[in-house]
Simulated assay, not measured.
Amino acid sequence: MSGQSRVIGEGARYGRLTVLATRHPGETHVQCRCACGTEKAIPVKQWGHTQSCGCAHRRHGYSGTRIYWTWADMINRCTNPTHKQWRHYGGRGITVCPRWRASFVNFLADMGERPPGMSLDRINNDGPYTPSNCRWTDHSTQSKNRRPLAYAGNRNDPATGRFLPKEVAA
């Protein structure tokens, strides 16, 4: 089936684009919303090749940096059911505030530069990614901020605090 004759369903995703209305055979464009919030009609011939409305190419000086990928992956984990970590984020209702979804620049303005050795952490692990619920923390602090069930069935060595191997059933 050629790309011109296929139906592209509402909600279909490619890159940062989400289809807003089902595209039927004969229609020349796919109406999409980019993760940055921009709505744009993408020519059918470009569907599957175009990743964004063009925002990914705008120059803010951070494309490809660790902080930019932290932002992009945060959105992807919460909005893309095919992301390998979806079940731990979007699949359990974790969202990203509209201001951050709309723009990397907004995220950067609210969170500031990523300090060396730090990563993005949600204070309330069941809460959304918002300015009031996020901080930069080191690995040690972040590893202590987990859901209680993440450790269910694990035993710790009282002296070191390290996990002990699981018992092998005889």
Rank of each mutant, 00 (worst) to 15 (best):
P115D: 02
H88N: 11
H24N: 13
T18H: 02
D126M: 13
F107L: 02
H88P: 06
H60N: 10
H49D: 03
G48M: 12
P148N: 07
T141F: 08
F163I: 15
P158N: 05
R66K: 15
L17D: 01
D126L: 15
W136G: 05
P165Q: 00
I75T: 01
G161K: 04
C78W: 03
Y151G: 13
A35D: 06
T160C: 01
R162C: 10
N124R: 11
H88A: 14
E27T: 06
G64P: 01
H57D: 14
G90I: 00
G64T: 09
E113N: 01
K144T: 06
R122H: 09
V44F: 07
T28E: 13
Q85T: 11
C32G: 07
A159H: 07
T50N: 01
H83I: 11
G112T: 07
W100A: 00
P131K: 05
R101N: 02
Y14H: 15
R122Q: 10
R162F: 11
R58M: 13
A72T: 10
P128E: 00
E10A: 10
Y129F: 09
T130I: 00
T141N: 08
G64Y: 12
A72E: 09
P43V: 11
Y151V: 14
H29V: 14
G127Y: 10
G127R: 00
E113D: 09
V44I: 13
M111D: 09
N76S: 14
F104E: 02
R101Y: 01
R135E: 00
V96R: 00
T22R: 01
Q31T: 03
G9L: 11
T65R: 07
G15L: 08
G15E: 03
C134W: 08
A109V: 04
L108A: 04
T95Q: 13
P116V: 08
A21N: 10
T65P: 01
N145W: 06
Q85G: 07
Q142T: 08
R162V: 04
I94D: 04
R99N: 10
N125R: 12
R135Q: 06
R59M: 09
R122L: 05
N156Q: 13
L120V: 04
W86I: 07
G26W: 10
H88Q: 11
W47V: 01
N133K: 09
T79M: 09
R101E: 06
T38V: 14
C55I: 02
A102I: 08
G64I: 10
R66E: 15
G64S: 12
Y68K: 02
H49K: 14
R77D: 04
A35S: 12
K166M: 11
D157T: 04
S2N: 15
I67R: 03
R146K: 15
G3H: 13
C97Y: 02
R114I: 00
I8S: 06
R114T: 05
S103T: 04
A72S: 14
G91Y: 11
Y89L: 11
W47N: 03
R162G: 03
R101T: 02
W71Y: 07
G3V: 12
T130W: 01
G161L: 13
L17Y: 03
G26C: 09
R13G: 04
G37K: 03
R101F: 04
S2W: 12
I8M: 06
R101C: 07
N156A: 12
Q51T: 15
E10D: 03
A41M: 08
T82K: 15
C78L: 03
G37A: 08
P98G: 09
V30M: 09
C134N: 09
M118Y: 06
S143D: 05
K144G: 05
